[in-house]
């Protein structure tokens, strides 16, 4: 487990058993680095929302400790919460308030005086400026999602939690959201997002934590994760069909297509580097001519499926 001291969020030994007796989290240890984008990846019911809710003060942990930028979330809750913005998973909004007033309301809750310029910039960044005087109930689902993000940013948080930010969201919003997240990252804001869409983690995150059935299965830099778990395939389109695999290529894990025109080598990302050149040389030495070459690597999805299945 990668636990570096001095992360902006230090979660140690956090467990949660709900009143129903259901164990939603088991001894979670996690350190979030300052300024990173961290994706908490896991299937539905894995405990992602529970973990976020504990850090944000909505759910009480059964045991363990959470420290946010040096502030214990129980003892020093006010300082801890002041740093955090939360975009909840569900579209929970008021109905009759205007966009402007609900965003100002959030800012007030966080103890900050009004700052129309900041609220304007947040609303503009989320394409909500034209809707500022609209009642919330007149907004579409996508607009409400934007509004929840605007509310979470109203108090200029240093840490932003996005709980399944793109679930049921249109392409425009997805795009705007990623742009916003990159901008926040450039400003030094730490972003923690949960998702059960792999592409989301793959696209955005610096690090990925995989959570399943209340257990943090692993935490890795995204590139390391791909490197460590990713398998790659290299396919050669042959000039003339091959009847069978030459004995000289026996040491490699190879597959020949039924028509004998495509030769595929499955290898581990770790073997990239020297291995590929070596392999191609051997192919030529065996007298096999190829017209084209293609490589592909497994996505986080494949990795995730294999990880979760292992447990």
């Amino acid at each position: 487990m990668l636990v570096s001291m001095g992360g902006i969020i230090e979660i140690s030994g956090v467990s949660k058993t709900y009143a129903s007796g259901f164990v939603a989290l088991k001894e979670i240890n996690l350190s979030i680095r300052r300024g990173e984008i961290f994706a908490l990846l896991g299937p539905n019911g894995a405990g992602k929302t529970t973990l976020i809710s504990i850090v944000c003060g909505i759910v009480q942990a059964s045991s363990g400790r959470v420290v946010v930028d040096g502030h214990d979330i129980v003892r020093d809750w006010r300082a801890a919460r002041s740093l955090i913005g939360l975009v909840p998973q569900e579209l929970t909004t008021d109905a009759f308030e205007s966009v402007w007033s609900t965003v100002s309301f959030t800012r007030g809750l966080f103890g900050l005086g009004s700052n129309p310029a900041h609220i304007e910039s947040v609303l503009r960044a989320l394409s909500l400026w034209d809707k500022r005087d609209s009642r919330i109930m007149t907004l579409s689902g996508g607009m409400k999602r934007r509004l929840l993000i605007a509310k979470a940013l109203a108090h200029e948080p240093r840490i932003l939690f996005l709980d399944e930010p793109t679930a049921g969201v249109d392409v425009d919003l997805r795009h705007d959201m990623w742009q916003l997240v990159s901008r926040l990252r450039a400003e030094g804001v730490t972003v923690i997002l949960t998702t059960h869409y792999i592409e989301e983690a793959e696209e955005m995150a610096d690090r990925v934590g995989v959570i399943n059935r209340g257990e943090l299965v692993l935490v890795r830099d995204k590139t390391d994760l791909l490197h460590e778990f990713g398998s790659k395939r290299l396919s050669l389109r042959l000039r003339s069909p091959l009847a069978e695999l030459p004995a000289a290529l026996a040491p490699w894990r190879l597959e020949l297509s039924p028509d004998g025109r495509e030769l595929t080598w499955l290898y581990h990302a770790r073997e990239a580097g020297a291995g590929v050149g070596d392999f191609l040389e051997r192919v030529r030495a065996a007298g096999i001519e190829f017209a084209d070459l293609e490589t592909s690597e497994s996505s986080l999805e494949d990795i995730f499926v294999s990880l979760v299945r292992e447990r």
């Binding site: 944000c56 003060g57 008021d94």
Partner: peptide
């Protein structure tokens, strides 16, 4: 009822 209480609970409000 609506769930917007999350905002109050997660804010630095005693």
């Amino acid at each position: 009822f609506t769930g917007t209480i999350y905002e109050i609970l997660s804010a630095p409000v005693s």
